[in-house]
Design a protein around this nucleic acid. Structure first.
Lengths: 233, 233
DNA sequence: CATATTAATTGTACCGGTACAATTAATCAA
DNA sequence: TTGATTAATTGTACCGGTACAATTAATATG
């Protein structure tokens, strides 16, 4: 494991275990260098990571402080913490409605950067959070990358399978958000009324080498939809 | 100006001007070092910045590639690019409904980490995008930090005033998103119907030293609300 | 000609250093 | 005591280096 990763994890755990509050001061750089027996730049790297995750912020001439003051029940749109953790925290389950290999729609082909005659896995499922319907999801996976999918995989975590099972590494995602009214079909699935609010999220996921492999369109139940973003300006 | 900032700007401009597409390859690290006559770590720093902004992605053993394939009309939730640029791009205007000094609500005091008897500037305004109503905004500014506000400032950009005028530097923001139905009052301001969808966004803005100075509650017109997030996983 | 092996390319991890800017603490002057 | 000045603390910018991992290109092998 990378040194700076390890340091970041240790620090995050430390904050968690000691229940450090917003603004609490962490040991200074010098001390962390000695404590972990690494160079300054390695500690700095670890702290950059934590800063990006929204866990700490640094003030020149002053110190390193705890940032996070999380509200419970909110889903991170940056999901730096990964989907796995989210699954544990939120107890997600899902019900598969459709799963097959097909040709992509024009829209999907465009976003996945493939031809109209290339194969994709199409997945349609409902996801539940604490037993409540959270969202209705339609995903297109490039079949040449995600070579195999089945019901068991989809009920669990697809992303977990992609990283662990297929040995692929996910790099980044572009996400687009809209607010709109539910269609009749969507309302039926989410057990809401037609015309009720919805959060509609389109995402394109890429491997670390930049290849898009998943184009997903998700309609969220507005009652369950609480998101947060931690930005650095 | 910082070297790595300058390099990042130059590269971003280069991409823009030459209309480089998603996946286009940039010069390799070595070349950039020579071209800008700086050390490797400085170029790396510049590229990290661009990666965080979602402009490029790097692949070890392969190269540096253009990432952004922006959709027009979407507002970045990370707003790394800053509010100024957004103002230019989107031609925002606003109409002030209320502006006064008052005591904070319990909620505001909690989020701003001040006492119930400390003063805050309260701002209520409607913001327009291309002449259409974009959102209804209520903001609380800690008066001990943001010492003065007036109508002229608010009609323009408050954040621009805070950085330029007051010489403060904004560090980070925590943002929470909900989807819900419009109340009668909100609907009236936004020229929509009661019960129509809304995107409700709460943000707490902090200075670089971690002090919160602005707690804002914004209700967006769902028709105009298009956001995007670029995450690195 | 396809395929396995090797070599070259290219970004990332990590070291250890100097200089400096922002903050905070200590000191001095009024 | 207050306010200004100075000194100590602490993170950030930048250098220049070594080692290495992932990818891609070149080469050898069947």
């Amino acid at each position: 494991m990378l040194k700076y990763q390890h340091i970041a994890d240790e620090l995050e755990n430390y904050i968690e275990e000691h229940k450090l509050q917003q603004g609490a001061k962490l040991p200074v750089l010098q001390d962390l260098m000695l404590q972990f027996n690494v160079s300054k730049s390695t500690v700095t790297k670890a702290l950059e990571l934590l800063e990006k995750k929204g866990v700490v912020f640094q003030v020149r001439g002053s110190g390193i402080f705890v940032r996070r003051h999380k509200r419970n029940g909110y889903i991170s749109l940056l999901s730096n913490q990964g989907f796995k953790k989210m699954l544990e925290e939120f107890q997600l389950t899902s019900k598969v409605i459709e799963l097959d290999v097909r040709k992509p729609t024009k829209e999907a082909a465009l976003n996945l950067n493939i031809g109209l005659d290339d194969d994709v896995y199409f997945v349609k499922r409902i996801r539940f959070i604490h037993g409540q319907t959270l969202c209705l999801e339609e995903s297109y996976f490039t079949k040449s990358i995600v070579t195999y999918l089945n019901n068991e995989i989809i009920i669990e975590s697809i992303f977990n399978y992609i990283t662990e099972g297929l040995g692929l590494s996910i790099g980044f995602a572009d996400t687009f958000l809209h607010v709109d009214k539910l269609t009749a079909e969507e309302a039926r699935y989410l057990k809401l009324k037609e015309g009720d609010p919805k959060l509609y999220v389109e995402s394109i996921f890429h491997l670390t080498n930049g290849q898009p492999f998943d184009f997903s369109k998700v309609t969220y139940n507005y009652v369950q939809s609480q998101f947060f973003v931690q930005a650095s300006l």
